[in-house]
């Protein structure tokens, strides 16, 4: 393990974001605003699927051997 990897591990906290985003349905149990006819209760979690993929990919990049920035 190289010395910088402990600092990089801080990026793992980003993985909590999806839990905050969709963990509690009370945040998105509403009809409005609608998008393309989808009530918020439906489009909002679908949006989070995409965000989760992106966040996980970013964490993957930041914690890999090269190119990671230290916190």
């Amino acid at each position: 393990m190289n010395p910088s990897s402990t600092g990089k591990r801080g990026w793992l906290w980003l993985l909590l974001l999806p839990f905050i985003g969709v963990g509690w349905p009370g945040f998105y149990t509403s009809v409005n605003p609608e998008v393309w006819g989808f009530p918020k209760f439906y489009w909002y979690p679908i949006l989070w699927i995409v965000l989760t993929g992106i966040i996980t990919w970013i964490v993957y990049g930041l914690t890999s051997g090269a190119g990671g920035t230290e916190q």
């Binding site: 993985l15 999806p18 969709v22 349905p25 209760f41 979690p45 989070w48 699927i49 996980t56």
Partner: peptide, 20 residues
């Protein structure tokens, strides 16, 4: 109805856990 849509947040939060 809505209750069945729990499958979506379920298949969202599973991936951060999987990653760790």
């Amino acid at each position: 109805g809505a209750m069945g849509f729990f499958a979506v947040p379920y298949t969202i939060v599973v991936f951060p856990i999987m990653y760790l």
